[in-house]
Design a protein around this nucleic acid. Sequence first.
RNA 1: GUGGCUGUAGCUCAGUGGUAGAGCACUGGAUUGUGGCUCCGGUGGUCGCGGGUUCAAUCCCCGUCAGUCACCCCA
Length: 417
Amino acid sequence: MSKLRSVKGMNDVLPEDAARWHRLESTFRELVGRYGFGEVRTPLVEPTDLFVRSIGEATDIVEKEMYTFEDKGEKSLTLRPEGTASAARAWIQHSVGGKHPVSKWFYLGPMYRRERPAKGRYRQFWQAGCEIYGDPGPYVDAELIDFVVRYLRALGIQDIEVLVNSLGAGGTRDRYRDALLEYLRPHASELSEDSQRRLERNPLRVLDSKAPQDQAIAENAPDILDHLDEESREHFETLKSALDDLGTPYRVEPRLVRGLDYYTRTLFEVRGRGGDLGANAALCGGGRYDNMIAELGGPATPAIGFAIGLDRLLLVMAETEPKPTLDGFLVVQAKELRGKALAIAQTLRDAGARVDADLRGGSMKSQFRRADKSSAPFALILGEREAAEGTVQVKELATGEQRELPIDQVAAAIIRD
RNA sequence: GUGGCUGUAGCUCAGUGGUAGAGCACUGGAUUGUGGCUCCGGUGGUCGCGGGUUCAAUCCCCGUCAGUCACCCCA
């Protein structure tokens, strides 16, 4: 066991697992393409201030989970803990709003949060997300929620729950906060320790506490949906009927809050119900952030986005059918023929075939064993006789059928599809 | 960040206060140009790391690191 290890909570993906990752990514890229989203690639590192101002100073992410460091003592930088803030920064920086009234962006990449690792939660984790700038909704809100459901289904993930809520706009949040505090304060001593702390700092969080005594109190708490301003109420009603029209299943969850400060109006979360997720069932979180662009110094622009946790999808995703990664595997009779075999392999590769060989010089038996395990449907046998005649034996491993072919006919014989 | 559990071969795991085992995997052979099955053999471990108790520790104690589960929070 080497003492050199990957950093805690940051994991390798080895070739045997890469196919599942490719499926997550290619399915996402394919689907996103059908909606006209374009990819944005931002740096992994941003000025710390970007996240403090967008995500919110008093959030857990900013308070204790960011990888922050001084760049040569000149500037505070942070490894991005999420993608929305970076994308917004890029959108503002390049004045994209001036060129396009509406832009649809997606991103896919690693994010960093210094939390205690657990199943489905890592310090480097992968998110795929979409952002739409310039459309105030609510139809685009519905479209985005529906997108997530379709993406998960395309991966064979059916057992999910879509939760939606609205945080309103303008003064809704503050008005509701006051009403909630008024209700909670008399119960303060009955709340869990955590919630007592949350009470003054972020009382909305008390609502989604898992402690039984908190849930009992939250049960009768005032409902944020009763405090929505008129415009937000209409927005939410239209969103729900748009989802109904799309046939997207959802449940209204007035206690859904989420931990980022920038959300306004539409808020949603998709949870998996597979047993493999443990306590980290949130597969996707998103919502509208109509004020953030302006707060970061850009032109007042409504926006909405979501992020999907790819590591978690991997835990609940259906098994991927293993596909052969090779067409042929060369088996060489004598050591002296290895140079010749290498040349043949190159010729076949030039012709588009996927070919490998074991050129260590082992017995034919061991080479056949490797051919078997390589997933290649064909073994290509090169012996003295074939070498002299410019041919190879092409043996189909599943059936045992074998025929001799001139080298220039081999590629066509073994390439599938 | 708090609490619980775990840490023996590449993998899954047995095991004992007296210097370590199985299955699978890998590899050689039975079959000197032919795999998958079978049989026989072989490689591989500072028993996570450090300290303590002991004549002696993989086993007991403490610490530490890593993993995992729950909480916190979130993707």
